[in-house]
Design a protein around this nucleic acid. Sequence first.
DNA 1: TACGAGTCCTTGAACTTTAAACAAGAAACC
DNA 2: GGTTTCTTGTTTAAAGTTCAAGGACTCGTA
Lengths: 174, 174
Amino acid sequence: MAYMNTAPIPPSADEPRWLTAEEQRVWRSYIEAATLLEDHLDRQLQRDAGMPHVYYGLLVKLAESPRRRLRMTELARYAKITRSRLSHAVARLEKNGWVRREDCPSDKRGQFAILTYEGYEVLRRTAPGHVDAVRQAVFDRLTPEQQKSLGEIMRIVAEGLQPREAGADLPWLR
Amino acid sequence: MAYMNTAPIPPSADEPRWLTAEEQRVWRSYIEAATLLEDHLDRQLQRDAGMPHVYYGLLVKLAESPRRRLRMTELARYAKITRSRLSHAVARLEKNGWVRREDCPSDKRGQFAILTYEGYEVLRRTAPGHVDAVRQAVFDRLTPEQQKSLGEIMRIVAEGLQPREAGADLPWLR
DNA sequence: TACGAGTCCTTGAACTTTAAACAAGAAACC
DNA sequence: GGTTTCTTGTTTAAAGTTCAAGGACTCGTA
């Protein structure tokens, strides 16, 4: 139930299109893997880097950006999180000394989040372990074809869920 | 950086195996899609069913179980969450009147989580909308081959992250 | 220049999750 | 029987996330 049509009745217009048994298996595998994986990486990073996976991702984005800085909104957009969440996250990272803020000169509303030297060091120190974890959990287990396939599939899914248009408080997350 | 080897140096034994540019793209697509998807479904269910995705999953598991009940530990194992998290979740669902607890007669430590009639009704009422959301976000966008592929891939990943052995507080989540 | 609408980011409260510690009972052992 | 050890499930506090609201600023337009 809840996913599958167990009753032997033909699908009608108003009858929801339940998942087939096979689709259901796919979906459950997805949920299971995604849950376990996120949990695994969160633990790994919490242990080795002292922060959850999302926060680590923020530092990575900053590290890749010119002058290691990004406007808050931009960072939020890249990381696919709300600005509110980002505000809290950056506050925490700031407390750790891994990020600092700076006012945007051209737009007084704006703030830059800037990766500090300490932040960069944390990244440099923990990146190898994290990459290893990702490899072990994902890439080492998949054939090149599967890796390629995974990339395509996730790209499609992500694309479909992308920010429609500008909205009240969530410009990109509808 | 942090994922890729940007330096033109040959990989050595102690040099971490950075992700190639292509692997990196795959990984980012995965993170992006997984983030957006979970967020999307959380919002959808919060709006239509008044609970986050994980909680909904718990009700589904119960609905599928004989006599609509499961031992706490078992439910936690199926849902891939810790028992602590489950305790909190069930407490909340109980407050909503969607789940009730019952002592296990054969093991006095044990507790059953049981789906109530109201819980079942919520599920029945909201399942179509949720299935629709899943279809729109995932299945409708993928070819049958891609669906199959996704299933295989996620099955492999999940399998690799499965509970190793019995451990202190997390018998299945190592 | 002044208005209104929209954007940028933050805040506080409510809620969820995590981590560590604990009480109670079962199981294994001797 | 009496330990000792493991398992079950909960609890507490801290950390993280969401939601709704709000202050500050920009921009378009009259």
